[in-house]
Amino acid sequence: MAKNSSKHAVVTGASSGIGAATVRKLRADGWDVVAVARRADRLAALARESGAVAFVADVTKDDDVAALATFVAANGGLDTLINVAGGARGVDPVATAQAADWDWMYQVNVVGTLKMIQAFLPALRENGRGTVLNLTSTAGLAAYEGGSGYNAAKFAQHAITNALRLEEVENNLRVIEVAPGLVATEEFSLNRLGGDKAAAKKVYAGVAEPLTAEDVAEVVSYAVGLPHHINLDQIVIRPVAQAANHKLVRKG
C-alpha cells in the first residue's frame, strides 16, 4: 500500500511521554517535524536526538500559538497537525472535585486543541490533503469513578474531533482520533496525583504489560502515514489486560 507522501507535521506535547515518542517515531519514518511544548530544555534535547525542529509554546496562549503558526508557515508549512498536549489533575469524585483542577484540564485538553486547530486550519484547507489527529483517551468514551474532571475534558475533545470531521470533509481534511487506555509514561500519573511517586507507581502495579508511549506513537504514525483517502476515524488502543476502563487485570 502506498504511504502518505506528505510528511510535514506539527506535534504538541512533545517534551515527554507520547508526544516525545511520536516525534521520534515520525522522524524515524522520514517526516519533517516541528516539536512543540513549554519546556525548552526538554525540547532542545529531543531536537538534538531526533533532528526535529523545536518550538517553545504554550498551546493555551494566543500569542504563543500565533507565533508558532507564523514560524511554521515561514518554514515549509504543514500537512499534518497532531495534538498530543493534555493531561489530568486529581482523582476526586464530583462531590469534592477542585474547580481549579477542572479549569486546568479543560484549558489544556480542550481549549489548547481548539486554538491549535483554528491557527492551522487555513493552511490545512489550502493544502487540500491535510490531516488533524487528536490524541484523546478512553476517558473520553466512558466515565469512571474519580475521573469526572478528566472525563469531562476528554469527552469534550472527543466531541470537537467528531464535529471537525463533519465540518471539514468538503475541504478534504482527514480527522483522526486516537484514544489510548492505560499507558505507563513517566509523568502522566505523577502529575495527576500531585507528584506522589508511590501513588503513581500503584496505578500500574501488577499490570503485566501496560501500553508504552512508543506503542501509542506507533499507532499515530501508522494512522497519519496511510494514503490520505483512508481515514481511521477513531482508534481505541488498550493493553490486553485492560478490557474496559473499569476492568483491569492485576497479578501479584
Rank of each mutant, 00 (worst) to 15 (best):
A152R: 00
G76W: 11
D92E: 14
A9E: 03
G140W: 00
V65M: 05
V111Q: 14
I230F: 06
S50P: 03
V220E: 06
V175K: 02
E126G: 07
E186L: 09
T70W: 10
S189T: 12
A163C: 14
K61D: 15
A69T: 01
E218V: 15
V91Q: 08
D63A: 15
V91N: 05
A9F: 11
Q234H: 12
V56F: 06
N171R: 03
E167D: 15
A28M: 07
I82K: 12
A213G: 07
A67S: 13
T212C: 11
P93N: 12
N245P: 02
V249Q: 09
K3H: 08
N109E: 02
G87P: 14
L141V: 11
G225I: 08
N231T: 15
K251R: 15
V175D: 03
R165N: 08
A217I: 02
I176V: 07
M105R: 05
V132P: 00
F71P: 05
E209R: 15
E49M: 06
V53C: 09
E170C: 10
T12D: 10
A97D: 07
G147I: 13
A223K: 00
S5V: 06
L135G: 06
A88M: 05
S16D: 11
T185E: 01
I18E: 11
L173G: 02
S137K: 02
G19P: 03
E170L: 05
G19C: 07
D32Q: 14
F55Y: 12
W31P: 10
F155L: 08
V219N: 06
A45I: 02
V240M: 07
L121M: 14
L190Y: 01
G112S: 10
V203N: 12
L190Q: 04
N83F: 06
V33P: 06
W31D: 03
V10K: 02
V108Y: 05
A73S: 14
N172D: 15
D196G: 03
H229Y: 13
L26W: 00
A20D: 14
G130S: 09
A40M: 11
H246G: 12
V240R: 09
G112M: 00
G30C: 08
V175H: 02
A57V: 12
